[in-house]
Every structure is written in C-alpha cells, then in structure tokens.
Design a binder for these strands. Structure first.
Lengths: 107, 107
DNA sequence: CCACATGTTGCCTGCAAGCTGCTACAATCG
DNA sequence: CGATTGTAGCAGCTTGCAGGCAACATGTGG
C-alpha cells in the first residue's frame, strides 16, 4: 500500500533517472526522495504539495493523479467544494452506483 | 469576508457566552478566541480543525458547515473524493448551473 | 576482486502553525 | 463609579513538517 511512491518510482525509471540525478531537478536531497518513494518519511505523512507539483512537472506525470495518490485534494477540486458546499455535501453522500449514474447522464 | 468568525460569534451569543466564559470550554485563551472571531490571527490562516471541532461541539453547531466556512474540506467529503477521484474531478469542472441541475434530478 | 554508482536509513536542524499568557485600553451597563 | 466585555499587541513556547548529511548496504561492470 504505497501507491504514490511506487508511481513516482515508475515515472522516474521511465525517464532513466537515478535518485541523485532527479533530486536536484526537483530541488530536494536524494535521500529525501528515497524516503518519499518508499513511504518512509519520519513523520507519518506524504510529500508536500509543492514537491508533488515539481515531480509531476519534471517527470511529466499527471499532477492531479499524483495528488490523489498522495491522498491530497487538488486545489481546483478544493475550490469548487468550498464554493458549492451544498452540492458537494450531497454528492459525497452518494453511493458509487449513483455517482456512476450521474457521470453517465452527463453525456 | 469573515464568514467563519461571524458564524462563531452568532452561535456564541445565542448561547449567552462571553469570550472569557467560552474560552475554557473549548480549551483556548479568550484573547485567541477574540482573534478567531475577528479573523485577526497573527499568521494568515484559520483556527485548527480540532478547535473547530470543539467549538461545534460546545456551541452545538454543524461541524461540516463550520469547516467549510473556514475553507477546510471535512473528512467525510475528503474520503469520498479520494475514493472516487474520477467522479469528483469531473464534477468539480461543472458550472454552477449544471450542478444545480444534477441536484434537482436527485429527487 | 575492486571501483563506483545506486539505494536505504538514522539522526539532526530550521521554520512556521497554532497556540499561551500576559498587558493595556475603550466601550458598555447596572 | 466599578465591573464586565471586547480588542489588540507582543513575547514566547511546543509540535510537526520538510528536508539535509553522513554513513552504510547493495549491486554491477570490468
């Protein structure tokens, strides 16, 4: 259960980077990157949003996907939830099946 | 533009508490509470989630509503977004009008 | 076998969030 | 008047986040 780290590692290998090569490109130390990939950060948590942003950039990954794997709510979604709390409170209570139905009816 | 503080103040008055009375009930100092209500915290930010939780409890307010006023995403909603990112990424892109339409069609 | 790149880990630090806890002063009210 | 209430400023303090450094392990080609 380390979806985020595994994804990062995958993207990194795909680009042929070593930890020491990638680290300076995203502005952190290589040892920190290692911990990020293995989910071994001292404090139980994940990388900061700004680091995820830089990683997505350099590795050409989907930033929102990475944020979600790291269990963070991406800003565009967050803003929308805050703007329309009435709507999202209700939507959040819906079953998977009803969500699917709504998505289908959007076309 | 101080929705959260105003709401807290309203709830507090409704219960007939003074700042100095309420403060110990939620475990903070009265001067801090004053700044929370007036949005004058030293660091630009809002009260912590745990304080909001205690306030909702003591003042018998709706915790999710208060969190949203403080521009924080409540846990139940957060979990749902993480569980169904595909759905919420799309829903977040919808206009207010389309959201209203969906809500209406839920009955 | 050695040299060297790569990955892993433990400890250590800087900094900002989220408070505490005074203090002082103005406004309000019985 | 005296007591209560709200407002504000300032100095600290504790915790957790974010990351650095140095040493150690593992692996790989020559």
């Amino acid at each position: 259960m380390n979806k985020f780290g595994d994804r990062i590692r995958g993207l990194r290998k795909a680009k042929g980077y070593s930890l020491r090569q990638l680290a300076p490109l995203v502005g952190v130390g290589f040892s920190y990157l290692c911990k990020v990939e293995n989910g071994k950060l001292d404090f139980d948590g994940t990388a900061s949003e700004s680091l995820i942003h830089r990683l997505a950039d350099v590795l050409e990954g989907d930033e929102e996907e990475l944020l979600l794997l790291a269990e963070k709510v991406p800003e565009p979604i967050r803003r929308r939830v805050i703007a329309r709390p009435d709507a999202f409170r209700r939507l959040a209570e819906l079953s998977d099946r009803k969500l699917d139905w709504i998505l289908a009816s959007l076309d």
